[in-house]
Design a protein around this nucleic acid. Structure first.
Lengths: 346, 346
DNA sequence: CTGAAAGCGCTAACAC
DNA sequence: GTGTTAGCGCTTTCAG
């Protein structure tokens, strides 16, 4: 009825078997190059398969095999430098290990997140790689995965204490370091456009900021802090909110790079110059950052590396080479010194 | 043997049926809320399913159903603004239509591309959405898909004449327009870092450039033209090549936005100032372009729109609502005026 | 080396 | 309303 795959009947093992007057089993074995088939039969089978344009039906194979060599990936957003780089790396590694990735995007919605996890479970992926949404609080779905024994690894945006391995950047220390750097440069009125406190990165990046401030005996002005999500629009509205207060901080530390871009956007609209009128530093960066005006001094995260390690860990677990308890890998970060936060002006 | 999904046995229809002392078929129907099952039975089944944590096995379902509600996506690269935006849109639309996307990344390798297409076919996706690599010349794999009647749509990087629908930006006209604009601004020595001529976008963006030049009776200096791929590194090496010639053009029109960034990178290394020493315009842009120094005047492509239309077209075709002949949709583009190509200096 | 039998989990078709 | 039968395409087991 439709122009889809069913319209032309697909070639099956049985078709090949019939033409060659041998059994389906022989064909199956020949195609998988098993040892107990004569070279001659193999050759005949392989040739005919090619001639007929045979494509194995993985669905059928998976149904008997019970594993799919497929990994489910759930991320909150694609068009964000950190994730774009991480997934690029994940796809590369997956290809090397002959796993297929089924990526889903939650769009920062917990309902979508749950829907996708269920869908991936129904597809019987061998394991799950997840970075949760900025709103995820409810852990029951993950608890359920734990009970079922589904291999699952969290990366970047994680939930601890559920027994799954986690891999993250050193959020707290990186934040601490960059705020400390700003303090050394002479800034004292330091604001923070942070993430929701229910997320690990929101919480830790904020506490790194707090620690640096306290260590330097600097006052943390609550008016200089706003919390929200991780995207450009959150930075934009965050800055607008700060702007509507009586006074602005001298420099703002943003929880992500997109948030910093949002600040740029808002400042531009308001005719406020960065870094002359107000300065910005961020957690995270982007490959194109070097071309910005000004380029943002920020904490560089090893996104590709995080993706790679997360996937390798997951594959190890799937293939039974990893049976240890919940483990948290914290990747070191470093500051990428650019054109913001150069010196405090007087 | 491993900590994978098989370790804990999955609940099946049969398990539920046995506990309830009814048949598998009744359970299957109840779960799919079919009309010929009593409300009472339905309730019992649904409750028990939830209690046992039943997850339908889509693999098994697909095997009998013969369609998978799954679409294969093959792109050359993720971390490139055009694709990031297009796939974000594709995922969004897919979610709305309840299709699952299986995205694969060819990394600009034709071998990977073919491997992924075969793999997606083996997974029996209902259709394919493809943007080919910069190296794709061999069309036999697509010919094969045509013969099999696989619904397939090309977008952005297309192959015409094979009978598949295509959707692209107006590459030639957009290029013509922006080069014409540069000419109006007084530039005469205009170079082009272009794409391989075997690709539609490489060819058309170059011919748009050529047309504008010819129309203005400007000389096209072969030394001002280099061809290559579409990424940052291609722009970088392209510019280095131009630099090693005797003279540089006044302005360079690049085939993609990443190529323009590559030019920025090379120029920065060489101590050449953009737009003072040499100027740049590009086909394509990025959301963060507005924060660049200088922001690049370029042709804006409706990436999200292209992804959306491509997918909707494909779904129409899969579901049998589209039976017309090969059709090419050309999306209008517009110039995004920024800080490059502002005026020719004397 | 080869093949017959059984089954993966689900659904469509048809009977009761 | 409900159940029986058969089959999707493949692989594993085991007998020859």
């Amino acid at each position: 009825m439709s122009a889809n795959l069913k319209s032309k009947k697909q070639i099956t093992l049985a078709d090949i078997a019939k033409k060659l007057n041998i059994s389906k089993v022989a064909v199956s074995k020949a195609l998988r190059n098993q040892s107990d088939i004569s070279a001659e039969t193999k050759k005949k089978v392989v040739n005919l398969a090619k001639e007929l344009g045979y494509t194995p039906n993985i669905i059928a194979r998976n149904l008997s095999a019970k594993n799919t060599h497929t990994i489910g990936l759930v991320i909150p957003k694609i068009n964000h430098h950190f994730f774009a780089e991480a997934i690029e790396s994940i796809y590369k590694i997956a290809s090397q290990h002959n796993y297929e990735i089924i990526m889903t995007v939650s769009q920062e919605s917990t309902a979508e997140e749950i829907k996708h996890i269920r869908s991936l479970m129904a597809m019987r992926v061998d394991g799950l790689l997840i970075s949760v949404t900025e709103n995820t609080k409810e852990t029951s779905i993950f608890q359920e995965m734990k009970n079922r024994g589904v291999p699952l690894i969290f990366f970047d945006r994680i939930i601890e204490g559920l027994g799954f391995h986690c891999i993250v950047s050193d959020d707290e220390y990186g934040s601490y370091e960059i705020v400390k750097y700003a303090i050394e440069k002479g800034y004292t009125k330091i604001g923070h456009i942070g993430g929701y406190k229910n997320t690990n990165i929101g919480k830790l990046r904020c506490s790194g900021y707090t620690k640096a401030m306290e260590e330097a005996n600097l006052e943390i002005n609550p008016d200089f802090i706003v919390c929200g999500g991780f995207s450009v629009s959150d930075g934009y509205y965050g800055f607008m909110k700060l702007y509507n207060n009586k006074s602005l901080p001298e420099i703002i530390f943003t929880v992500t790079y997109p948030v910093a871009l949002g600040v740029f956007k808002a400042a531009k609209e308001l005719g406020i110059s960065i870094p002359n009128d107000i300065d910005v530093i961020s957690f995270g960066d982007a490959s194109y950052n070097q071309f910005l005006n000004p380029s943002i001094t920020g904490v560089h995260q090893p996104a590709a590396e995080i993706g790679k390690i997360a996937l390798e860990l997951l594959i190890d677990q799937i293939e039974g080479r990893l049976l240890i308890e919940e483990k948290k890998i914290v990747m070191p970060v470093k500051i990428n010194f650019c054109q913001t936060c150069v010196k405090k002006e007087n």
